[in-house]
């Protein structure tokens, strides 16, 4: 009976930089991952703020001061951009999954649409909120 060999399996290499020059398709793709994972910071801060609101006036004042400070404003402004970018790029992903929009020219245009769309939506969010 063959003993199954334990092998250190290789990871696929990180392509952008050493193998591929950065371009719209790859950068807009990696940005989806970066924004999505970075939003955990927003989730932590928001959960903390909600917990404080449910706890006591003193605790709420403490966390609310952080949330409404320049630092909080910066975090939430960047978060707004990240959330809109991730949402638009996610929609693009669903469109790609359907086998559409994969021609290089269209894919690049969709990448620009994510960046520009996210910026426009962030400005609208700041105006409305």
């Amino acid at each position: 009976m063959a003993e199954p060999k334990r092998v250190e399996r290789p990871l696929s290499p990180f392509m952008i930089g050493p193998y591929y020059r950065p371009q719209m398709t790859s950068i807009s793709s990696i940005m989806t991952r970066i924004t999505g994972n970075a939003l955990i910071v927003t989730a932590l801060l928001t959960a903390w703020w909600l917990l404080a609101a449910a706890t006591s006036p003193g605790y709420f004042d403490f966390v609310n001061a952080i949330v409404t400070s320049w630092f909080g404003a910066l975090v939430y402004t960047l978060s707004a951009w990240a959330v809109w970018y991730h949402l638009l790029a996610g929609l693009r992903h669903l469109y790609f999954d359907a086998g559409k929009g994969l021609e290089i020219e269209t894919a690049e245009k969709l990448g620009w649409a994510c960046f520009i769309g996210a910026t426009v939506l962030t400005i609208i969010t700041i105006i409305l909120v």
Partner: peptide, 23 residues
């Protein structure tokens, strides 16, 4: 993802309305 496409804009609106108000 499809669920969040609908939920997240609603939540951004809710949170945006809530932040900055008294407890």
């Amino acid at each position: 993802a499809v669920s969040l496409v609908f939920l997240v804009p609603c939540f951004v609106f809710v949170l945006g309305t809530a932040i900055g108000r008294p407890q």
